[in-house]
Design a protein around this nucleic acid. Structure first.
Lengths: 202, 202
DNA sequence: GTCTATACCGGGATAGAC
DNA sequence: GTCTATCCCGGTATAGAC
């Protein structure tokens, strides 16, 4: 009886956890975190409620896992943008990778953004600190790219924070929309051109 | 004993209702609709729970009132934009009046947008139909203005729906931000210039 | 019109058998 | 690792005195 579990057991455990997580993300996305009960999750997963609590110690823990498990990698990828010499290129990179990420992980992102305002009353101090730090780091990339663009003369003199937040808003926009006809490529293209040129002709 | 109440009584009733509504909006905005209990509302308003139910028949009714009471007038005002001959002017009008409205009714708007996705599981058929129709009408104004701008040659050939939604996203953006240093005028100015020219120099 | 008291249900979480 | 049964709390809403 070793303390650490065998690789196979560990793997199965992770598979089941991620199955629970996917289902929870779907339900939280549709009904909201607070309106989704552990009973519902138990029904939809067809796992007993006791079993759920064997894998996750609490409901907030599930939400936390939804909010950090997928983003970590994406945020690391995006951080490359602030080191690019060309600001337009950096911005494109952020837009492209982020929209792809959102389209591929729609439920997760929906939950994340939807519950964002309420993290303070759901998470404990550690969880909260971790999530908020992640967010700050992500936004910092956008700000830096904008600053670089202003220094290099590619971008206008704009309020960096406000503009950064608007860009962020445009990127995550599609997670809100109930329906959208465009595919990923078009979404990226539209976001890109709006941010860079606006809607005016010329 | 007439069936209709006297003007004074009616007036007091409306005052108290709007006091309840303001408080509820504040709480819903901070903690979310589901996480806010009628007990909390009772405590904060310092009105007995029974009294609350004397003024509002249910919790969903309170949310509904938050979502329609203020917007009705604003949406009517905004509808003028689609009739303006100059598309840029029309767009400005929407941006300006809407940002003013949001800044002035921050809690109400926050609740509205925050719970938007969950209206289906909170409201009854009538309430839902009314709210969704309001929204469609509002968005239609934005779409029309964009179409006008494209026809007149002021705007580029863009996907109207996607662009309209992005513009809407930029307008309501500030309701999300925990803090923002800009005043109304600057918010309008930044939104305006981003939408029209983008961030590129020239 | 405002209060107290309470009905009644559904929520998160756990104990303990298997 | 999975199940049943249950605890206990807090939620919405109401009945009925004042």
């Amino acid at each position: 009886m070793t303390a650490t579990k065998s690789p196979t057991v560990q793997r199965n455990r992770e598979n089941k956890k991620s199955f629970i997580l996917d289902t929870a993300a779907r339900l939280f996305a549709e009904y909201g975190y607070h309106a989704t009960s552990m009973d519902m999750l138990s029904e939809v997963t067809e796992l007993n409620k006791g079993t759920l609590y064997y894998y996750y110690t609490s409901k907030p823990d599930i939400l936390f896992d939804i909010c950090v498990s997928k983003t970590e990698k994406h945020y690391r990828v995006v951080s490359a943008a602030s080191k690019m010499s060309d600001a337009v290129e950096g911005l494109n990179f952020i837009i492209e990778t982020s929209i792809n990420f959102i389209v591929e992980n729609r439920d997760y992102c929906r939950v994340y953004y939807q519950e964002d305002h309420f993290f303070e009353s759901i998470f404990d101090r550690n969880q909260l600190a971790k999530v908020r730090q992640q967010q700050r780091r992500f936004m910092q990339n956008i700000y830096t790219v904008i600053e670089n663009g202003i220094s290099s003369g590619q971008f206008r003199q704009i309020d960096v924070k406000t503009c950064g937040r608007h860009i962020y808003g445009i990127i995550i926009g599609p997670y809100r929309w109930r329906d959208y006809s465009l595919d990923e490529g078009d979404l990226i293209e539209q976001a890109h051109s709006l941010i860079l040129q606006g809607i005016r002709k010329e």
